[in-house]
């Protein structure tokens, strides 16, 4: 009999990609067997933990591993960040959400901002495999916070980099680079953008006049992740949709980003209070 190497949800590898951005590989063969680009998991750390959605950045079906990249911003991600190799995450459920649409579209521009680069990575990889010409634009605040550069280079025909402070690549935002690319007259068949809500909103605004089909992967607040609570609801095309079961990918030109952004901020005060308490108690 084959000895089971790891326990379910055990952290097998851990890396710090950038200050406060961590990558973990988690043993969960049932999720690894099914994961597809664009899907996510819900993770809960400890009895008192919150359920939070995190994108599946990569998977290894043979080894039964999934890769999760996250930035420590609140109590839940800090808690996750404190777990080390050999620790078991209390609860992981997935893969959740609809897989991204992967077809041969022609030329596809993959835009990733911040930790969203880890989410665009599997999409770029699959789109490349499907025979597309993949042009990727990735950006971060500065060069230290830029993650997955090598990974993205491997799966892209062309990689462009931006940083807010100009410490690497072009000084500016990914949306600036996207605008220039479209202005150059290159025929683009599809744009996919993943990152902070404001970045996705700007990208949608950039592509709209060019009439290029643009897909965004929404990152709304979530509770159940399986269509049971409606916490993640957004307005798309004037209708209420659930990110977890109807998305997370939506037509960027139909998304009401203002509603999304305001709903993302609904618990700001509570989040800050909880984080302050956590850092004081656990420091």
């Amino acid at each position: 009999m084959v000895r089971q190497l790891f326990r379910l949800n055990e952290i097998v590898e851990k890396k710090e990609l950038a200050p406060r951005i961590k990558e973990i590989k988690v043993y969960n063969p049932r999720i690894a067997a099914k994961a597809r680009a664009g899907q996510f998991v819900i993770v809960k750390v400890g009895e008192e933990g919150e359920r939070i959605p995190l994108t599946i950045a990569d998977w290894d079906r043979e080894k039964g591993l999934i890769t999760i990249v996250f930035q420590e911003v609140g109590v839940s991600t800090y808690k996750l960040g404190r777990l080390g190799v050999g620790d078991v995450i209390t609860d992981v459920v997935g893969p959740l959400g609809n897989p991204s649409e992967i077809e041969k579209f022609g030329t596809v521009v993959c835009v990733g901002g911040g930790v969203g680069i880890a989410a665009i990575y599997p999409m770029a990889k699959e789109l490349k495999k499907a025979g597309n010409r993949v042009i990727s634009i990735i950006g971060a605040r500065n060069k230290d916070l830029l993650i997955y550069e090598e990974e993205m280079r491997r799966v892209s025909d062309e990689l462009r980099i931006t940083t807010d402070d100009g410490s690497k690549g072009r000084k500016g935002f990914v949306s600036d680079e996207l605008r220039d690319l479209l202005n150059s007259g290159l025929k683009v068949d599809r744009v996919i953008a993943v990152g902070p809500a404001i970045m996705m909103k700007t990208c949608a605004d950039v592509t709209r006049p060019f009439n290029v089909k643009t897909i965004v992967s929404l990152n709304s607040l979530m509770l159940c992740g399986m269509g049971m609570c409606g916490a993640c609801r957004v307005e798309v095309g004037g209708k209420t949709r659930f990110v977890c079961v109807d998305g997370p990918d939506f037509d960027a030109h139909q998304v009401n980003f203002d509603v999304l952004i305001k709903r993302l901020n609904a618990y700001k005060a509570e989040e800050q209070l909880a984080l302050k308490r956590f850092l004081e108690v656990k420091a």
Binding site: G227, C229, G230
Partner: peptide, 22 residues
Amino acid sequence: AGTPKFPGIPGETLVNIYSANE
């Protein structure tokens, strides 16, 4: 039957509106 119904009226995505399930 776990998926909450929303009334489909304007403003239902405003902050501090919950489904009972949530």
